[in-house]
Design a protein around this nucleic acid. Sequence first.
DNA 1: GATGTTGGTGAGCGTCACTATCCGATGCCC
DNA 2: GGGCATCGGATAGTGACGCTCACCAACATC
Lengths: 214, 214
Amino acid sequence: MRLAELSERSGVSTATIKYYLREGLLAPGRQVNTTTAEYDEEHLRRLRLVRAMIQVGRLPVATVKQVLGHVDDESLGRTVRLGAALWALPQIPEPDADDEFVRAAQRETGELLDALEWSNAKLLTTISPSYRSLVVAVAAVRRLGYDWDFELLLSYARLMHRAAALDLDFVETRPSEAEKVETAVLGAILVQPMLQAMHRLAQEEESARRYGFE
Amino acid sequence: MRLAELSERSGVSTATIKYYLREGLLAPGRQVNTTTAEYDEEHLRRLRLVRAMIQVGRLPVATVKQVLGHVDDESLGRTVRLGAALWALPQIPEPDADDEFVRAAQRETGELLDALEWSNAKLLTTISPSYRSLVVAVAAVRRLGYDWDFELLLSYARLMHRAAALDLDFVETRPSEAEKVETAVLGAILVQPMLQAMHRLAQEEESARRYGFE
DNA sequence: GATGTTGGTGAGCGTCACTATCCGATGCCC
DNA sequence: GGGCATCGGATAGTGACGCTCACCAACATC
């Protein structure tokens, strides 16, 4: 198929597709001659993936490029490939290590990992962006003076652990190694907005149950 | 305290505070004379809240203004106030009703709410942004050809329902009505990045447990 | 009374995700 | 094979966003 058809079938304008090609998010089509390039189903699929990451997952274009680069890097093993892809995801700005709330949050997060017995995650605290994001989020909440107890944090973390187990169970149903990696990355990127929407909807539901609409 | 001190205690530059004042995110200080305004602890608290929403919650400035406007509107009842604040949160672009995947996702999401017996949420399907976001997310996943079964969606939703129940339990511990509303909004905005970070960390933990680091 | 700081204002900056326009080469219909 | 639409590619521009800078007259402080 040609650019125009790729555009029509994906719902993405030709101008935008050209932009993605320029940015290296999409492999160039097979060049038939100077004014014609041929795209296939794989291009369409990749384009949909890119759109989903950008629009649903709200990833910056540059990040999408990095993530895809890692996903496509067949020289790496699965865990490393997945890890590399996940770590390219956009990060909250680096925590300020001088801030007292940040230091307290680091301590608290460490205790949390101990209590959960997430020993592998504990090993990653110096390098994992997720860990840093968690510290920043906890620090922000504490800075505002909220005094949730530790049990609440633990409960949230256990819920998310169960969600992660569901993700990985599904990943294991994928037949090929390449699909497993892609699915895992997608799980990290697309499941998140879905969970967020479900969370808000559940808040609305539960709030209405408890207090009615008034 | 004056602008410079507010800046120092919050870690936000005076230029940025001035910008927030201009945008109406912060109430003006008590004007002492033409060149001096006096700010209090409430301003500091509000400023930290604004920063947390923008940096941790990634809300656009205009959205923060709307959300705070609803939070401050004492003429409304709690549920309505909370709902108004939540619905001002940034939304994924409107789903395209002509798209077959969107229509299928609407159907599937409706069935999901039925199966969950979220009857209140079901009433909100025409107006709730969370519902629309959920539809868009489900459509994106389906468009990419993933065939998760309904049970998986149900499991995710039940987990998020439990998270929402935890949020609201905590909200109920707040003494005053105003604090309850603020806490609820904050729960929707700040708990989310925390859950996201926990989710990714849990994925890393679980992945390492199952497959090691290799 | 000299110096430096205050809060307010308007304009400017860098980033980002596109988008509009132009180009010459080519496909395609008659 | 003439004429016109369409092709892919390149460059420059757009509008939104979140600040940030420079400047100002009015004031506090020494």
